[in-house]
Amino acid sequence: MSFQPVKFYQTGTFTVGNRLLAPDERSEQANPQRSNSINSGHRACQGCGEALGARYAIDAAMAESNGQLIAVNATGCLEVFSTPYPESSWQLPWIHSLFGNAPAVATGVAAAMKVKGRKEVRVVAQGGDGSTTDIGFGCLSGMFERNDDVLYICYDNQAYMNTGVQRSSATPPAARTATTMPVGPEPGNVFGQGKNLPEIAMAHGISYVATATVADLRDLEYKVRRAMGIRGARYIHLFVPCPLGWGTASHDTIRMARLAKESGMFPVFEAEHGEVTGVLKIRHKVAIEEYLKPQKRFAHLFGKHAHPEMVERLQAIADRNIRKYGLLDEGSN
């Protein structure tokens, strides 16, 4: 599925230097003419994965639509940190209505553009995992089912960070949040069935569904551009670590995203019309501990009162992802 052949690894990282790529393969962020859709000066925390992801995603969408883009935002961190009155970071037309209705508002914007014959104007809706997997889930499913011409991007940081780190249906098992405290015999979030929104999106049969992380920003840009080339409902689920909510160092955001992918905890794939068409393979498989240990939200699983059985269960989830999506090349590792 790769959009570019990886030519070179800088020492100790997987980052591809722009200098080594042909101009058309370079990141939109290397383009001095980029739209800077979400401009500097916003109030995101240091190391915010969502701000980084939004910057890459929306600039790529702007590039692909020749600047003819309208953004609809759900309530949440991205909305709050980007538009503190009387300022706005957004350099494109942008509307925020409510926590749970961004997909429906986007449907309305798209309908207005259609009725006015402005087919060149595209619509992107965006929200966090709370608005996407919980409160706005009905509207999202409705938008998918009608196949409205909207690209929806979920910035998944696995909890309600804006309100102070409460559990969402995207919170992983065992994780500490303000409403799943690390107390009692099974500390942290429950081992539930989970709510796999990329798969639920696929079950709607929409033309394009993809997952991505901020550790692979070229892959994100590629997927946004790909999605923008298609009409109808599309969904991108972007994994964005949150230093505040996860208890990780600000400088570890990209590392955490990479470990989520490399451990198998977050499968990176794309799907068309309900079928997986490609996966980003794990390059160097890591044990789940390597992903969990730097995060304070999992601290109760280790140390004096460790819960190795819970770590095992989390490893089993990662292993299942690896099997299910074929994340490992046969014979590697």
Binding site: I95, S97, A104, V105, A112, V115, C139, G142
Partner: peptide, 17 residues
């Protein structure tokens, strides 16, 4: 739409556009 909440939300989007 799939609910009245969506009905008004779609109208918000289309009116704002």
């Amino acid at each position: 739409v799939e609910s009245e909440f969506a009905a008004m939300s779609v109208a918000i989007g289309s009116s704002a556009a």
